[in-house]
Write a protein that binds this DNA or RNA. Structure first.
Lengths: 137, 137
DNA sequence: TTCATTTATGCAACAATGATGCAAATATAG
DNA sequence: CTATATTTGCATCATTGTTGCATAAATGAA
C-alpha cells in the first residue's frame, strides 16, 4: 500500500511531511516507532509538527499507540481492520529491554480472557511482553 | 503491616520522608499512585527526593511500576510474594479512562498464555485493561 | 552515648517530552 | 483560479525526569 493512497483513504491531506512520516512507518511494518525514532529518520524534523501529525494519524485510525513500558510513547501502523475510532487493540506488543525495539505481536495471544470486579467496564486491553529480542540474545 | 516494619524488612533506612511516602501507599492498597498523586498527599514534597525514594522502593521490591497507558508512570505496593528483583508481574492493572484511577487486579487473569515468535525471550508481561471504573459509570 | 561511615535529603541546573497560540504556507473543493 | 479550511513552522511555556554536590540524618561499632 502506498503512502498517498493510505492518506487519502483515511481522509488526511497529503502533505510532504505526512507522506514522509507515513513512508517511515511503511518501511518498518510491525515495528512501533518512538517520536525520537521518527525524528532521526526524517529529513527536516519539526518536533511540533510531528506531534500533531502523529495525533492526526491516530485520530484517523492510521496508527495506534503501542505502550511498551519504556516511558516514551510509540506508534505503529494499524492493520486494515482498524477503523477510525475502534482500534484493534487486542494484540500484544513485545518490548526488548536491551535495544528498546518494540514489535506488534498480532498472533501472540491465543485465548485472552479476563474477569473484572463488579462495576468496572472494560473497553480495551493492552498486553506488553518484555524480554530480549532475537538480535540481542 | 506498619511502614517502619516494611522499611526494615526491605533493608531501607527509616527516614521521615520514606515513612510518609510508604504510609500513603498503605492508605491506598491496591491503588497505583502517580508521582503527582504522591506529591499532593505529602506534607513537604520534594520532587527529586520523591523520584529517588520511588526508585529505591522499587529496587528493594517494596513497590512495582504499574503501566496504565496514561503516559505517566504509577507505582503500587507489592504483595508479600514480590522479592527484590523478581516482581510478581503477572497481574493486570485496570485503568479508568475517566478519572485516571489505576488498580491492581490480582485475580483478573484466569489463564494468561502467549506465544512468542522464534528467537524472542520473555522475562515478564504486563496487562492493562482500560475502561470505566465503578464510581465513574 | 558518641563517633565514624554510609546513605538520604534538598537545592540548583539541566535534558527530554509534550502542549498552545499565531502568522505564513499549502491543499482541497468549487 | 480562487476562496476556504487545514497544515506547517516558529516562539513560548509546562511537565516530567535526571545528575551533581553540599548538608543532614541514620546506622553500626566502640
Amino acid at each position: 500500500m502506498k503512502a498517498v493512497t493510505l492518506l487519502k483513504e483515511h481522509h488526511l491531506r497529503k502533505t510532504d511531511f505526512r507522506k514522509e512520516v507515513l513512508e517511515i512507518f511503511l518501511a518498518h511494518k510491525g515495528r512501533a516507532l518512538s517520536h525520537a525514532d521518527l525524528e532521526m529518520a526524517l529529513d527536516s524534523p519539526d518536533r511540533i509538527t510531528l506531534y500533531r501529525t502523529l495525533r492526526s494519524f491516530e485520530e484517523k485510525g492510521l496508527i495506534h499507540q503501542a505502550i511498551d513500558g519504556s516511558g516514551t510513547n510509540k506508534y505503529a501502523l494499524c492493520r486494515d481492520d482498524c477503523t477510525a475510532h475502534i482500534h484493534l487493540d487486542r494484540h500484544a506488543h513485545f518490548h526488548c529491554q536491551k535495544c528498546g525495539l518494540t514489535l506488534c505481536l498480532f498472533h501472540a495471544m491465543k485465548d485472552f480472557r479476563y474477569q473484572l470486579p463488579e462495576g468496572m467496564k472494560a473497553s480495551s486491553a493492552e498486553v506488553i511482553i518484555k524480554g530480549v529480542c532475537e538480535d540481542c540474545s
